[in-house]
Nucleic acid binder design. Structure first.
Length: 442
RNA sequence: GUGGGUGUAGCUCAGUGGUAGAGCGCCUGACUGUGGCUCAGGAAGUCGCGGGUUCGAUCCCCGUCACCCACCCCA
């Protein structure tokens, strides 16, 4: 017996019930994004390694899955390819490559797996799906607003009511940190620490700021700013950059009220987000008591890293795995997603009757019923037991008695009732009997 | 990467320094053309792996691997 039958660490097999739940969520996401005018894009799992390195910050760089060079170079330990770490950087590469053929405002969605060499934890894996939407080519606040509206509508369609879209702005944060005299090269570290304010508290953040090399007085001033909006605005407003960011945030907050996201968006001064490529508005979507379901923001500099031409861009990424964890916990899946067994099991009495069973199955399938034929001429008891385990609604019996009479016996597995009807009436009978069970699903 | 916990039957887990048990599931039969219920019987484990202590280890010790939880970071 083989010892290792588990998938590799952090990777998962999806059994049929898992796939159905995942597919349900993906269908909703795709449907909403399509209605917002986003178009599908797919990119390769592997990228040239230089495409990925240097785009995610120090922490991100470490977590990239690298692929050894092949052939004679294999022993050198050199690496030339890597599994994609997110969907945004590949998008930026595609845009830089195909700029001429893409519309002026390119809106795309992408639902594919990404890989991170992270330590797995609850709702966190080394291979996981992201559902990204991005809009390329406009710096308007309308872009952020549509983004927020689309992800809000996804969550609403899935049945979430208690989500919050937190909104902040990198330039605003940066201007505030300037005002508090935090050195520019320390600001990224500072943001990471500040992001934990409600998690580790004021003292925890101060300790972390100091540990990250930020002056104690500057740390105190930052913390005061997050407790007092006046102080925050005063610090940030000292620069034109901060004032402009502030106007941008205000515009987004106003416009968003005209969308399905109305009432769900909250300006959150301490929101920072980890990825280094964000340049403007940053967003994170979370559900009470659970944490982040996804996030995004504006990254006006990323495409330029590939093409040299600065093209404004903004995107949002929903984490499929997180959504699934919460939906499972809260039992938010419609019943038909969970139970999806065949409608009918057709029994096989003996070798000679198999053809009849297959003919009946074909006929029922043409009526869009889901039909399974028992593959062996087992004892009837076994066939029933199997049907029961498969949770089928009906078992159709074609035994010697029935065949002699040109009839079929249909048993309703739920009620235990069974009737024998002429062969020609089976389809009509099942279709009629099917109605109550089908309607129970809704 | 750091700290803690757990590895015993297909699954969930008991257990003891003298080479192992329950519940569920599975198989067979009571019921020779009928699942779910009941009853009777049955199969199944190198007790994660390697070493040490011991007359003897599933149990004690060391190491190792895997999984879980928290931290870190994130989706």
């Amino acid at each position: 017996m083989p010892q290792h039958t588990r998938p590799a660490r952090g990777m998962r097999d999806f059994l049929p019930a898992d796939v159905r739940r995942r597919q349900y969520v993906i269908d909703v996401v795709r449907g909403v994004y399509e209605r917002y005018g986003f178009e599908p894009l797919e990119t390769p799992a592997l990228e040239n390694i230089e495409t990925l390195t240097g785009k995610y910050g120090e922490e991100g760089n470490k977590l990239i899955f690298k692929v050894l060079r092949r052939g004679e170079h294999e022993t050198s330990g050199e690496t030339d390819l890597a599994l994609r770490y997110d969907l945004t950087v590949p998008l930026a590469r595609v845009v830089a490559e195909n700029r001429g053929q893409l519309p002026k405002f390119f809106k795309r969605y992408q639902i594919q797996p990404v890989w991170r060499a992270d330590r797995p934890a609850r709702g966190r894996f080394r291979e996981f799906f992201q559902c990204d939407v991005d809009a390329i080519g406009s710096a308007s606040a309308v872009v952020e607003v549509e983004m927020i509206a689309a992800v809000s509508e996804v969550l609403q369609t899935l049945g979430f009511t208690d989500f919050v879209v937190q909104l902040n702005h990198r330039q605003l944060l940066s201007a505030m940190l300037d005002g508090a005299r935090v050195a520019a090269e320390r600001q990224n570290d500072a943001m990471v620490a500040i992001d934990k304010l409600d998690k580790i508290g004021r003292d925890g953040v101060k300790q972390e700021l100091i540990a990250r090399g930020i002056d104690g007085a500057a740390a105190d001033q930052c913390l005061r700013a997050f407790e007092d909006v006046q102080e925050y605005n005063a610090l940030a407003g000292r620069s034109e950059r901060g004032a402009e960011a502030s106007r941008n945030v205000a515009e987004i907050l106003t416009l968003v009220e005209a969308t399905p996201a109305s009432g769900h968006v909250k300006f959150t001064p301490r929101l920072a987000r980890g990825l280094s490529y964000y340049t403007g508005a940053i967003m994170e979507i979370s559900v009470e008591g659970i944490g982040s379901l996804g996030g995004g923001g504006r990254y006006d500099g990323l495409i330029g890293m590939f093409s040299g031409e600065q093209i404004p861009a903004c995107g949002f990424s929903l984490g499929l795995e997180r959504i699934l964890v919460i939906m499972s916990e809260r039992e938010m899946f419609p019943p038909h997603v969970a139970s999806s067994s065949p409608d009918v099991l057709v029994t096989v009495f003996d070798a000679a009757s198999a053809a009849d069973s297959l003919r009946l199955a074909a006929e029922l399938r043409s009526l869009a019923l889901r039909v399974e034929v028992y593959p062996e001429a087992d004892k009837l008891g076994k066939q029933f037991k199997y049907g029961s385990a498969r949770n089928v609604a009906f078992v159709a019996i074609l035994g010697s008695d029935e065949r002699a009479r040109g009839a079929v016996t249909i048993k309703n597995m739920k009620t235990g009732e069974q009737v024998t009807v002429p062969r020609a009436e089976v389809a009509a009978r099942l279709r009629r009997d099917q109605r109550p069970t089908t309607s129970e699903l809704h």
